[in-house]
Design a protein around this nucleic acid. Structure first.
Lengths: 133, 133
DNA sequence: ACTTGACCTCAAGTTAACTTGAATTTTTAT
DNA sequence: ATAAAAATTCAAGTTAACTTGAGGTCAAGT
């Protein structure tokens, strides 16, 4: 299994062929050659796509993600940038944790008005403070 | 401070006036009346906007978020839905944690090729397994 | 040789979430 | 009373990230 047809990449990643072509068009991934018309992908690409998908779910734009890979398709960023991005992520994780808690709270709290429930308000205040800091 | 001018909401939330009008247009928030032409917002709205912003950062669409509020602007969803959404969030948090770790790893690992670094690969595999399950 | 199915290109269309701009209306300050 | 500041509406424009569709190509099996 040295090279992959687009259909195999589709199968492994869950992305659609049009998406993969689009990603290639904007330079986010590369095909390694053609068999007739057909793009051939290196197995490496699968991992790269994992990273892309992961990055997307973290809220990065495709442009930002593209900026994280070097010419060779390997992650490539100055260390400080990576640290900074990781820090951002940790912030986001923190916020999401709060949201998750808030949701579970609302699911279980029998107060007539969540907006006026002290616990709920506290959760929201935490977020606000966080966003401003 | 019973009612808020749009400018006050802008100041408190960091959103732009056009965004607030847009949110009202699509029914995500409501103004409580007018002073002349000018919209007046209830202080409640600030908390609602906190939730909206939070929801957005969690990757929910405005439509989905709109579906989480009742007519009164209060969070309103069947308990199971809330639990399910919280579960989704926890999954996402899990993924983001991995991404954060991956970034920090890349920042510190001196291996020539991250894609081939065992630790890095392991991180990616975890994500994959997770997405499929 | 021929059909079939997987792939291709390229231009145009789509959706979400806003933003922009022009023309108008108040409200507030002097 | 008047000018400046702050809002308003409404239509149209923008950006990201794809998708769709029409029409064409290629390679593998019968």
């Amino acid at each position: 299994m040295r090279v992959l047809d687009i259909s195999e990449v589709v199968e492994q990643t869950g992305l659609r062929p049009s998406t993969l072509r689009y990603y290639e068009e904007i330079g986010l991934i590369k095909s390694i050659g053609r068999h007739g018309l057909r793009r051939q992908f290196a197995p490496q690409t699968l991992m790269q796509i994992s990273l892309i998908t992961l990055g997307k779910s973290a809220g990065f734009t495709l442009d930002e993600i593209a900026g994280m890979f070097g010419e060779d398709g390997q992650p490539d960023l100055p260390r400080e940038d990576l640290q900074a991005r990781a820090d951002d992520l940790d912030k986001q994780i923190h916020d999401l944790t709060i949201l998750s808690k808030a949701l579970r709270h609302v699911a279980n709290c029998s107060a007539p008005s969540h907006m006026e429930c002290p616990k709920f308000q506290k959760l929201l205040r935490v977020v606000k403070r966080h966003k401003r800091g």
